[in-house]
Write a protein that binds this DNA or RNA. Sequence first.
DNA 1: CTGAAAGCGCTTACAG
DNA 2: CTGAAAGCGCTTACAG
Lengths: 341, 341
Amino acid sequence: MGKKPLLKDIAREVGVSTTLVSYVLNNLKEGRISKEIAQKIREAAQRLHYRPNQIAKSLKTSKTFTIGLIVADISNPFSSTLARIVEDEANKINYTVIFGSSDENQQKSAKVIDTLLNRQVDGLIISPPADSESQMIELQNQGVPFVLLDRYFPSVKTNYVALNNHAAALMATEHLIDSDCRRIGMINYRTTLFHLQERKRGYLTALRKHAVPFKKSWLRQVDISNDKIEIEKAVKDLLNLDEPVDGLVFSSNIIAAHGLKFINTLPVKVPDDIAIVSFDETEALDLFYAPLTYIKQPLREMGAMATKILLENIGSNNRITQVDMEPELIIRASSVRRRNA
Amino acid sequence: MGKKPLLKDIAREVGVSTTLVSYVLNNLKEGRISKEIAQKIREAAQRLHYRPNQIAKSLKTSKTFTIGLIVADISNPFSSTLARIVEDEANKINYTVIFGSSDENQQKSAKVIDTLLNRQVDGLIISPPADSESQMIELQNQGVPFVLLDRYFPSVKTNYVALNNHAAALMATEHLIDSDCRRIGMINYRTTLFHLQERKRGYLTALRKHAVPFKKSWLRQVDISNDKIEIEKAVKDLLNLDEPVDGLVFSSNIIAAHGLKFINTLPVKVPDDIAIVSFDETEALDLFYAPLTYIKQPLREMGAMATKILLENIGSNNRITQVDMEPELIIRASSVRRRNA
DNA sequence: CTGAAAGCGCTTACAG
DNA sequence: CTGAAAGCGCTTACAG
């Protein structure tokens, strides 16, 4: 107990100025301080259990060594995986991370950003919700260093690290075509989020490129706020068509989770009746009888890259860096039919 | 761009003292400040996009309105669910949360605690790793408000919120007995962590109480650092006994996930060949053909309670509060055999 | 090699 | 109803 020791308590103990104590404990002016005094100061700091007040330090230096991380929902595995990676990367360079969940909601996102900025984070890593362009512009106007992760807005020129989602969906769909599917559906969210638009576009590109038919009824867009029910309905509809789809792309891991659970209750056989490709791996799908083919995002590289770019920007570099990562298709049983490779 | 506006910039704009501006923006002395001036101050703050510097505020008031949260691994669904709940509860009372993952490792945990304390968090919520009693004692000596969540040490008198794990395992095992299992195994971690010891004890209590036989070889304790492989081996061994077990308790969701994935590859039938009960629900298990019977922890109440207790302690209440929550057994197909209820 | 002093952006006891 | 001033715990330019 007792009062927390301060720099000046150490200074008094040793009989020097706080200036000197500060220099020693921060390893500054190393050559120019006598070894014995430095030693004594360090010992006293130890003995008193000195703990530097990072708040006071930050106020003086206007650096908090803190990164604000805004994800959709920290309890979602995709978000928490990303959070863990950013945590690791930040720790490597002695940064701490404060996080907040935006719940795909601009108001909440604005509030979280506000809180984090009040706490003077040195910069932000953001997975922005739909229609939050104006918030990004606002941040730029305020000169806040930030980088978007996983998602970005083509209309706003910002740093970002994201997947090449068009290529990913193209690859996924081509794989289904290659697997002899000719009536290929997609279940996507109904949203303005660019990365999901890109997945839709990639799907359409693949069909056109290979002259595989497309019907409007094969592309289902569900409401994110009522996803479970709408996804089940979409699956049911796609399978109940006069000519049911024989291939299906789930454009997110959450869609895949709901979709697969529902399919699991139906008498259809994957991949023979319907071949499936999903985005993002999820442990939640590991027990499905036909291991899922999926688009793999290089999440660790993405998190590391985002942290690195942010740091460069905090270091007063105001170049804009945009990184599109290449997807990888992990082929497993859910999509392999007839002609086996 | 431009410089960030300060209190004194607003003061200058309006032609009053910073004192007054501070009072107004913090809604202090409401009755005693003229409406017009207050109004002008608020307008100026808006116009200049004033953003209070929480760091300066904290330095002065020695309150950061920040909670430090230490979990095992933020990318584990159990941790991230807890994190989300703490986030929500903290936000309700205008607190922010900073988190760190301890990776079940005392050194890492000590480091994270240190970092958070340097940042002057007002208090900590901790899921401590094994053998970190001394860290808890150290925190108490330093007078840091904290509450343990999910886990605690019976030898150290601290605030905690945890499940009654003995009751939970007792309940789980009795249910298997009731479901006509007579050779009941458990797969647990080999650890000193009290909550897992309690689960083992509850399992043994149930067997003794109902005079159901117990064999040492039925209780498998796996190493947490090599869990996947050891869990698979344990499952295999338990099923390859001369008289294989006919009931099995998985004492954590991770054990269940690995165990079930492995069982899924075997020709055994759940629940007829082997009935299963697990701890904690996990989406990861939803696609298993026999929906899992599991012990449900009231996570939201636990997170809310931990936050509440922490706040009382921050408010200089130094009473110690220990809460054991009651488990609930959610019975589903994985454990129901023969005599149906 | 060392120290006195200003200052980071706020809050708040005190005085009027 | 309002303001001058001290101070939170540090860092650091400056001087010697």
